[in-house]
C-alpha cells in the first residue's frame, strides 16, 4: 500500500464534495410550474366526495394527505355531547404485548387518541397512564424526544389545566410524527394516523345511542368520516413500500365499501365574513342518508379492524 500525502487526499475529497454540492444545487433550481384551475362556475350538488375529484393533472412538489389527528378525533366526540366511558379505551397494561413496528405505530395512534379523550373529560389519573403508554410506544419506535422527563413533569404540574394538557398532547404528537417524517419513515407515520383515526371511529360508534339514532350528533360525526376515507386511501397508497401497509389498505377498502353506501350531497359553498371577529363562515347545506342497518354494519367492521390492532 502506497502512502499518499494528506494534502492531496484532502483536496480530492474536497473537490468531489464541491462537485456533489454543485450538482445538487443545480437540481434544486429546477422549478416545476403547477397551475391551479380556475373555479368552475356552476352550482352543483355532489354525491361522491373524494380526494381524486380535487386533484389536478399536474402534481405539486409536495402533497399532504391530512387525517384528523387523535386530538381532533377525540375533540369531535366530546363536542358531539358523548359521555366518557373508560371501558372503551385500550388498556394501558397491554403495552408490553406490542413488539412490531406496525403494532407500536398503530397503538401509538390509539393510545394518543385515548389520552386525548381522557384529557378532554378531565380524567387526570388516566391522562398520566395513557401518556406513559404512548411514551412506551414512541420509544419502541425509536422516538426518544417525543415525551421526555420534562414533558411528564409539566403534565403532572398542569394536571388540572385541560388546555395546558391538550397543548402537551399536541406537542408530543407533533414530536412523534415530525420525527418519523424527518427520518424518512412516512409509512410508520401514516400507521400512527390510521391507529388514531380508527380508535376515534371505534369510540364514536360504540357511544351512539341506538334509541336516539336519528338525532344523535355522534351519527353526524361518523357520517363525516366518509369525507376522510379517500384521503386515508391516498395516504396509504403513497406509502405502500412498507409490507404492513397493504394489509391496512385491504382493511380500509372494506371500510370504504360500507362508507360508499352512504350518500352525501352538498350545495355550493358560499362565504361570509363576520366583521366583528374577522372569522369567515363557509355556508353550505349537506344532506346524507345513513340507515341504522348501514351504521351497524359500519360499527361492526370498525370493531373488527380495531380488534386486529389491540391485544
Amino acid at each position: 500500500m502506497k502512502n499518499r500525502p494528506f494534502g492531496r487526499t484532502f483536496l480530492e475529497i474536497a473537490a468531489i464534495i464541491s462537485l456533489t454540492f454543485f450538482l445538487f444545487s443545480c437540481g434544486s433550481r429546477e422549478s416545476k410550474e403547477s397551475k391551479v384551475n380556475e373555479p368552475s362556475a356552476p352550482t352543483v350538488d355532489i354525491t361522491e366526495v373524494d380526494v381524486s375529484a380535487l386533484q389536478d393533472v399536474k402534481e405539486a412538489e409536495k402533497i399532504f394527505y391530512s387525517l384528523p389527528s387523535p386530538l381532533e378525533s377525540a375533540m369531535l366526540i366530546k363536542s358531539a355531547g358523548a359521555m366518557f366511558d373508560e371501558e372503551l379505551l385500550n388498556p394501558t397494561e397491554s403495552t408490553s404485548l406490542y413488539s412490531t413496528n406496525k403494532d407500536m405505530a398503530l397503538n401509538l395512534g390509539i393510545y394518543t387518541c385515548d389520552l386525548s379523550f381522557a384529557s378532554l373529560y378531565d380524567q387526570t389519573q388516566l391522562v398520566i397512564n395513557y401518556m406513559s403508554a404512548a411514551k412506551k410506544m414512541a420509544e419502541g419506535l425509536g422516538i426518544l424526544d417525543a415525551m421526555d422527563e420534562e414533558t411528564i413533569n409539566r403534565l403532572e404540574e398542569n394536571i388540572n389545566n385541560r388546555e395546558a394538557i391538550m397543548d402537551i398532547v399536541s406537542e408530543t404528537f407533533l414530536n412523534s410524527n415530525s420525527y418519523l417524517e424527518d427520518n424518512e419513515q412516512p409509512a410508520i407515520a401514516s400507521m400512527v394516523l390510521v391507529g388514531g383515526w380508527i380508535e376515534g371511529l371505534y369510540i364514536a360508534t360504540q357511544l351512539v345511542n341506538m334509541d336516539e339514532f336519528e338525532s344523535d350528533k355522534l351519527v353526524v360525526r361518523i357520517i363525516d368520516q366518509k369525507l376522510s376515507i379517500g384521503i386515508m386511501m391516498k395516504l396509504l397508497q403513497d406509502n405502500n413500500e412498507h409490507p404492513a401497509i397493504n394489509e391496512l389498505i385491504s382493511q380500509m377498502t372494506q371500510l370504504k365499501t360500507i362508507f360508499d353506501k352512504i350518500n352525501i350531497s352538498t350545495t355550493r359553498i358560499t362565504t361570509e365574513v363576520d366583521s366583528e371577529t374577522d372569522v369567515t363562515i363557509l355556508k353550505s347545506k349537506v344532506t346524507s342518508d345513513m340507515t341504522s342497518e348501514v351504521f351497524v354494519e359500519l360499527a361492526n367492521k370498525v370493531s373488527e379492524i380495531r380488534s386486529s390492532y389491540v391485544k
Binding site: 433550481r29 405539486a60 402533497i63 399536541s170 407533533l174 376522510s228
Partner: peptide
C-alpha cells in the same frame, strides 16, 4: 390548540404544495 399534525417541507421560489383535509 394545534391539532398535533406535522406538515412542513423545504420549498423553493415558485414551487407549490397541496394539502387535502376534512
Amino acid at each position: 390548540i394545534h391539532d398535533g399534525n406535522y406538515h412542513a417541507a423545504i420549498l423553493t421560489e415558485g414551487e407549490e404544495a397541496e394539502l387535502y383535509k376534512t
